[in-house]
Nucleic acid binder design. Structure first.
Lengths: 264, 264
DNA sequence: CGTTAATTTGAATTCTCTCAAACTTCGTGG
DNA sequence: CCACGAAGTTTGAGAGAATTCAAATTAACG
């Protein structure tokens, strides 16, 4: 029943993205001091202009939009090993806030160093581009969930996604892990009211799928849950191997095999 | 009441992204023939491995997830001037399909050429990175809409977004434009049933905000609609000017002014 | 041990969907 | 030019689902 907290250091970046980052690159990007932000404080404000990117070393954060009517929508939960603020670095104003859920440790990233690297050559730039792609896939999946999945399925899907993402950065037990979200926050992620999420969690518990008590997610029947939620984790993995680049369709413009193209 | 169709050529790329792309770069990326895909056909299949990116010259397309239960969720509508398939190019499998809503003309992009360009130096790579950032912001906004906005507000917001996006690629009249979406498709985008969207459109018409008849969106009271929908188009604009890069926080790791950071 | 925050439950209201059917539009072929 | 069929739009009625409001219970923390 115990759920260990997990802490990711910069040195683990290599493992996190499944890509070997050579040390010099890493040093160019991460030579600054680690900064700490307390739980509940804001890392990047919505609309903020000058800002930088971070690598989240430890703790949980959230990407959140504040609406005019006072309600919030959490777009994504950020866990150790995630980048923060790079998937919107070319927008003048931050399109959403990033707030610390727990106390977090952040390694600032130099945009300048990042941009001066060749997108094709740098393994780190590679990892970062991949990371942006993943963030996009995660948010897309949330959109699908909120729009098309009922609360029970949606909640189960989210908990499985969390387990999967945490596993990638190394938790002890994928079936029993620490999750510092209050039911209010989780409801916010899922686009539900806290009251209704509470009822939904009870239903998932009664079905024997999963329990969520005292900040601990306890997956009791993973197989059943995956089946029930229609969970397919492929959107979280799937690094495009570098060699695969050569496998892309060449510059001749010929068909990629799906048979639908027609040259003008 | 007339709504003109709009057609974007490659030469307009300069204007579309608000960035001057020098000709040699453009040629390196777009030297292939334009391909045409018929309405209803698939441009990129969900899960497809080998694939390439495109610049959408004319016509409308949709990014769509197909769920196991047979239902679909359109993640985003793609209009002329948008890139297709580059915001997930580093994922092994396409996380969603891209399907032609109308007949479309596509300019294939060479990933190799794209990746061999320096992310920092190339203006086109710049435009593409910005484009990815925009796509992310658009999908985030959809997520917020589906999760937090009621159907009337959500629909009004979506129509205003369309107007704004089309304006950027040059339509004649932002208040009266061609929109080739059926109510089924629009309902799919908005996470509603077609029946309910139809009622919602009637309500918006009765309120005097907007009408949608025979593939034409007619905005009658833009100001009122913007107020009603809480629409803020800033997430669609906001190119980070190149000079602003130098304005980012330097490599010294000092505060960015929000006062929340604390060095370790 | 007291105070505050978070979770849990109930009941009523509101909203959205489903199902069913009628109507409209538009392209095709006779 | 009209008949026909298919696809899309519109409306109604009833069932089901989620929200709101309110209150009780439990957990967390100084």
């Amino acid at each position: 029943m115990a759920a260990a907290e997990n802490k990711t250091t910069l040195d683990q970046l290599r493992r996190i993205r499944g890509i070997d980052i050579d040390t010099s690159e890493r040093l160019a990007l991460f030579r600054r001091k680690i900064v700490t932000v307390e739980a509940g404080d804001t890392i990047i404000f919505e609309g903020q202009e000058k800002r930088r990117g971070y690598f989240l070393c430890s703790g949980w954060a959230s990407s959140v939009r504040h609406l005019i009517d006072g309600s919030d929508q959490i777009l994504d939960v950020r866990i150790p090993g995630d980048f923060i603020g790079i998937s919107d670095m070319r927008l003048k104003h931050a399109p959403h806030a990033t707030e610390a859920i727990t106390r977090v440790e952040l390694a600032p990233i130099s945009f300048r160093a990042l941009l001066s690297m060749s997108a094709g050559a740098g393994q780190l730039a590679e990892a970062i581009l991949f990371s942006i792609n993943c963030d996009m896939a995660i948010i897309s999946e949330h959109l699908v969930g909120v729009a098309r999945r009922n609360p029970q399925v949606r909640t189960a899907h989210f908990l499985l996604e969390l387990s999967e993402r945490l596993t990638r950065v190394g938790i002890d037990d994928p079936d029993c892990f620490h999750c510092p979200l209050s039911q209010y926050l989780m409801a916010d992620v899922l686009g539900l009211t806290a009251v209704h999420l509470n009822r939904t969690l009870r239903q998932l518990r009664e079905r024997g799928f999963v329990s969520f008590k005292s900040a601990t997610v306890d997956i009791r029947d993973r197989a059943g849950m995956i089946e029930f939620a229609g969970f397919d984790p492929s959107y979280l993995h799937q690094a495009q191997s570098r060699s695969a680049i050569s496998g892309l369709v060449g510059p001749d413009g010929r068909s990629n095999g799906n048979g639908y193209f027609r040259a003008n």
